[in-house]
């Protein structure tokens, strides 16, 4: 396998609609995240953060530009990957604002489901899930249902779900929004720890003032373009 270079996005553009009503959501985004790194993506409402995440998450198609994951070019004016569903399943982990766990599966199976979808055996899937749950300090809740967990515990389970297939890329959309500042910081700490451990490139979209100082590097997006900034990198 080629050298893992994490995420590399070059001159990515995305237009919604056409003709009169065209919206240029992304107007040439350049962005790079190396494995093991967590970067913040911040910007005012309507600046294109979710659009960027959706393009990178292979759920909407960009208009032009290039995207590479782990030095494999996946988009270059058009998709270079035929099975986007498998791409999402194997290469990308998602963490959402709300945990969106499957309510009728217990915690361990919420996570184990993901490798199972990729054809991994039930036992192996549950072993991997348990390993992650313990690393994220929720191993003792493995047999509970999501509704029986606290908000912070649920979010940790959803991080475990994002990481269980060892994806080279993790995309997090406002993952700390519903959490208080201590829990928010602990979630970010865990994302950092996991990024290092699994050599994942992590992008965290956030408005959250509490966690902005934790990033070493920040991409500020304004008007569809990204500007790279140095962050404070204070992860206490």
């Amino acid at each position: 396998m080629a050298e893992n270079t994490g995420i590399r996005i070059t001159d990515l553009r995305k237009q919604y609609g056409s003709g009169e009503s065209v919206v240029e959501a992304l107007k040439g985004v350049d962005l790079q995240v190396v494995p093991g790194e967590v970067v913040g993506l911040i910007g005012p409402s309507g600046s294109g953060k979710s659009t960027l995440l959706k393009c990178l998450g292979a759920v909407i198609e960009p208009t032009s530009g290039q995207m590479a994951l782990r030095s494999e070019l996946i988009y270059d004016g058009s998709w270079l990957v035929s099975d986007l569903r498998a791409l999402r399943r194997d290469k990308i982990g998602f963490v959402f604002q709300a945990p969106y766990l499957i309510p009728f599966l217990d915690v361990i199976d919420n996570i184990a489901l993901v490798p199972m979808l990729a054809g991994v055996s039930n036992t192996e899937s549950r072993n991997r899930a348990m390993e992650l749950l313990e690393a994220l300090d929720v191993g003792h809740r493995a047999k509970a249902f999501p509704s029986q967990l606290s908000g912070g515990e649920q979010q940790r389970v959803s991080i475990a779900r994002a990481l269980v297939n060892r994806p080279p890329v993790v995309l997090a959309d406002e993952p700390t929004a519903p959490l208080d500042s201590e829990r928010a910081l602990s979630v970010i700490r865990m994302l950092n720890q996991m990024a290092v451990q699994y050599q994942a490139a992590v992008i965290v979209v956030t408005h959250d003032e509490k966690i902005i100082p934790t990033f070493k590097r920040i991409y500020r997006i304004r008007d569809g373009r990204t500007v790279e900034e140095a962050g404070e990198g204070r992860l206490c």
Binding site: V59, R85, F94, Y100, L117, R161
Partner: peptide
């Protein structure tokens, strides 16, 4: 519906 969207996103057929 939300869970189904998530299932699809994480690669469920």
């Amino acid at each position: 519906i939300r869970e189904i969207a998530v299932l699809k996103l994480i690669g469920t057929r």
